[in-house]
Amino acid sequence: MEIIAQRPKSLTDLQFTYCPGCTHGISHRLIAESMDELGMRNKMMGVAPVGCSVFAYKFFDCDMAEAAHGRAPAVATGMKRARPDMHVFTYQGDGDLAAIGTAEIIHAANRGEHISVFFVNNAIYGMTGGQMAPTTLPGMKTSTSPYGRDEKDIGYPIQACELLNSLRAPYFIERVSLLSPQDIIKAKKVVKKALQFNKEERGFTFVEFVSTCPTNWGMEPVKAMEWAKENMLPFFPVRNFRDRSVEGGE
């Protein structure tokens, strides 16, 4: 019998610890499938963050390091510099990358480290139970912005792709969403492109996933996807920001 779908080799057989309807499982799978297809698994090292995806080091079946909160790009820098013959990616959430780890991501990008950064933006701190994230939308209620995020008091959400796009060194920056099957198919192509560039040692590559958190948003998964389309995409537009492989791609 022909096998038409199976677990990618680049994922272990451990059951994910994510909530039902969470998009982490999808982004894990897209990365793992791309690693398989590009034959990168045996030379891949990944860095897991602190946040819901803290156990990513158990889920990706390559060598993995678990970093302190926000420090993944620095850890990845050390790994890549120490073993330049290997490939390195980080997997980070919004609190990890855009709050406590802001310095590390900006400077790793600015150095043009030959790593891929996968950034999961669901506008909330999931693991600690639904607190305000640096990407929480204006007016959005969380457990630490119970009256809604007041941008006059705490500022506007940080747009990571736009921020990094102000730097000269990055090779590839794109925001995708995981809010429909079509979006996921498109996202897969972008993930694979980033890892292809990684494999070819082209430079720093960055992919942001506009994602959902049904549990902490207090919504059914399908409703969360609809809500994200209506509310997140206007603030976090899905598009390519930088692609040095094509003319005019920056």
Binding site: A65, R71, V75, G78
Partner: peptide, 14 residues
């Protein structure tokens, strides 16, 4: 300094 010691962590892991 924070980034430096975390680069050390990554490199040592190899």
């Amino acid at each position: 300094e924070v980034a430096a010691i975390n680069m050390v962590y990554g490199a040592s892991g190899t």
